[in-house]
């Protein structure tokens, strides 16, 4: 597969990737290195992993990071209740000697995303979402797994990877990542799309959208991004906005100011933004876009 073919394949699944992004994903596949994707919320970072798993026709394993994420939620955990029961059952039956062997076997192991990702028959896509929310200790642990692709379980020994997953990490700047992690990854920064790209995304995701309305929506959102906002709307917001307009049966942004203002709830996500972007401003932007 070449880079252009990958880009087309992703477009077929409804993801319009810029050249830079497609190249980064392509290299991540070819070089077998993790890909770190940074960008504002709602520009489609997580979506890349989903689409990539569809293109490669494989499983998507997702690990959502949060503060305090630890090994027992990210890697593996023993099924303690089942172990206790097994011990009791074995004691009743009088086979105490075998029990230690038995309860620390695969049967009693609960796989969490990281362990699951290296034990698939077909290499999955491992999405480590919002890595900057996890704390530094976890980042260090992740580094080890990304370098060796093996997990050591004291009771069971080292579990080597049967296949090496395609690893995608996303971050949106809650915390700065360590240089060690950045060094190990390929890097791509996803920004807000330009007019043409956004139009293509809209066409790919909403095929039955009228062309004139699509142009209006993209023009509207592009102008809205130029206003000073606390939270600039991403592509996800554009798609929500489109869905709202289609659901309400609006064919032209300028016809009903009150209704348009009501749909702004899909684009403006903070109180200050809602307050600052008044009906007049909305109408002015919509007028320019039309």
């Amino acid at each position: 597969m070449t880079c252009a073919e990958l880009q087309t394949a992703m477009a077929d699944k409804g993801y319009v990737a810029s050249d830079d992004l497609a190249m980064a994903v392509f290299l991540a596949l070819k070089l077998g290195r993790p890909l770190l994707i940074e960008g504002a919320a709602g520009v489609g970072k997580t979506e890349i992993a989903r689409v990539l798993s569809q293109v490669l026709d494989t499983r998507l394993i997702r690990l959502q990071c949060y503060e305090g994420l630890d090994a027992s939620q990210a890697i593996y955990e023993w099924n303690y209740q089942k172990q206790l029961l097994a011990i009791r059952a074995a004691a009743e039956g009088g086979r105490v000697a075998e029990v230690e062997q038995k309860i620390f076997s695969q049967e009693f192991l609960l796989e969490r995303p990281l362990l699951a990702a290296i034990r698939q028959d077909k290499a999955p896509v491992l999405l480590v979402d919002e890595i900057d929310r996890a704390d530094e200790e976890f980042e260090a642990y992740l580094l080890e797994i990304l370098a060796e692709f093996q997990v050591t379980i004291p009771e069971l020994g080292t579990v080597p990877a049967t296949t090496r997953p395609v690893v995608i990490l996303t971050a949106n700047g809650t915390r700065d990542l360590s240089d060690a992690l950045r060094r190990r990854c390929l890097y791509v920064n996803v920004g807000y799309p330009d007019r043409q790209t956004e139009l293509r995304i809209l066409r790919a995701r909403c095929p039955d959208l009228a062309s004139s309305l699509a142009h209006q929506i993209v023009g509207f959102v592009q102008s809205l991004r130029k206003e000073t906002l606390e939270k600039t709307p991403g592509i996800a917001e554009t798609l929500d906005f489109t869905a709202a307009l289609m659901g309400l049966g609006i064919n032209d942004l300028t016809t009903d100011p009150a209704l348009l203002q009501a749909t702004m709830a899909t684009l403006l996500k903070t109180e200050a933004d809602r307050f600052n972007i008044t009906t007049e401003i909305t109408q002015r932007i919509a007028g320019q876009a039309a």
Binding site: D20, M23, A24, Y187
Partner: peptide
């Protein structure tokens, strides 16, 4: 050159500022 640029950017940059 566009392709080379993209490839080298993915490998050699590590944060938004560098990109």
């Amino acid at each position: 050159s566009a392709m080379v640029r993209g490839a080298l950017r993915a490998v050699l940059t590590g944060c938004a500022e560098e990109a």
